[in-house]
Computed example of a mutant assay.
Amino acid sequence: MREIMSTKSLRYVFLGLSLTSSWGNGHASAYRALLRGLRARGHSLLFLERDLPCHEQHRDLRRPPYAEVGLYRSLDELRDRYAQAVREAALVVVGSGVPEGALVGAWVTEEARGRAAFYDLDTPVTLRKLALGDHSGLTPQLIGRYDLYLSFTGGPTLSLLERKYGAQRARPLYCGVDPEMYHPEPAEPRWDLGYLGTYTEEKQQVLERLLLEPARRFRRGRFAVAGSQYPASIAWPENVHQLEHLTPEKHRAFYNAQRFTLNVTRGDMVESGWSPGVRLFEAAACGTPILTDPWPGLEAFFQPGREILLVRSTDDVVRRVRETFDSERLAIAQRARQRIFAEHTSSHRAETLEKYTLELLDEGSRQRLKVGREAQVALHPEG
């Protein structure tokens, strides 16, 4: 990645679900892209994660070259080993999905001498949990203690976070993609349509309509599904190739082996809108044209019909896969890739977070200066 040094080097500490293991979660890909971008801008990074057995068994990046990694097994170990690092950071970022996240966040907001942010990579899920009274990851009181609420979801949700939940500053920080990792490669497509994603029951219903049933109807077509946790009970059509979990370094080859790739959006993210998944950006950067279910706010990221294609039914998918000329397919992919370079790289996201951080630090400096001046006037009212 080309380094674009910031005017000021900052120390960031992240506490996230996982940086070292991408198994069964999309957080790792998002964090890896963001931290690579921050390091390229000259910042110093420490990522802390709970040493969970499921991640220990599937670690695919034990020592990232762009960040220090610290593993901890308990809250007590976290406090004992990393309190000084949290105190010295310019910004401490606590991510959604962290085990005992509310307790971690309460400690961070109390301990940090710089600023503290909550990074919600699952905003619709978080809001649903709050509404149901599940406060294990985040409490309503804790939201207001964070200086910054970073959200994977934009649009109206941001004002909701401030108005209803008391967030001081709710700002979007969408996922991004590193173009040096995700790019086109000369290859003859193996599959007409592919999908990459971890199994959930809800998304499987959409996958049935938008990939498995099209495969049954288009018997000469070739299809692929890659991801973890798919039950053995699923009856895959004969022309669907099912792959186990692919680590991020294998995503590029998978996308480049497809004529089209399918994006499936979780129901809560469709309802909230403005929630682009990282797979959208990865596929677009690889120059693979995307078929996606529609959701509000999509046009803020890609232009439907020109940069991405909407599909609502089995018939839509079969028609797109069978009838789209290669010239049209590749033109759509190229326009989407240009959009990525213009707006959605890891460098863009790192620059955005840096901007937010400097605004917080500058505001804090102004506030301290104001308090100092008021104290001087109180001590010397006559000047």
Rank of each mutant, 00 (worst) to 15 (best):
V311S: 00
V311M: 00
V311T: 01
R312G: 15
R312Q: 14
S313L: 12
S313T: 15
T314W: 00
D315G: 13
D316G: 11
V317P: 00
V317W: 00
V317D: 00
V317I: 07
V317F: 00
R319P: 04
R319W: 11
R319M: 10
R319E: 14
R320G: 00
R320N: 06
R320M: 12
V321R: 01
R322K: 09
R322H: 06
R322I: 09
R322G: 06
E323Q: 07
T324F: 05
F325S: 08
F325L: 09
D326F: 04
S327F: 03
S327N: 04
S327V: 11
S327H: 08
S327I: 08
S327G: 05
E328A: 06
E328V: 08
R329W: 08
R329K: 06
L330M: 05
L330V: 05
A331L: 13
A331G: 05
Q334C: 07
Q334S: 11
R335I: 12
R335M: 14
A336D: 03
A336T: 03
A336W: 01
A336Q: 03
R337L: 06
R337F: 03
Q338V: 10
Q338G: 05
Q338Y: 10
R339I: 07
I340M: 12
I340Q: 03
I340C: 06
F341G: 15
F341R: 15
F341M: 14
A342T: 15
A342H: 13
E343Q: 14
E343G: 13
E343T: 13
H344R: 10
H344D: 09
H344L: 15
H344I: 05
H344M: 13
T345K: 01
T345F: 02
S346N: 10
S346Y: 04
S347Y: 07
S347A: 12
S347L: 08
H348F: 12
H348Y: 08
H348R: 10
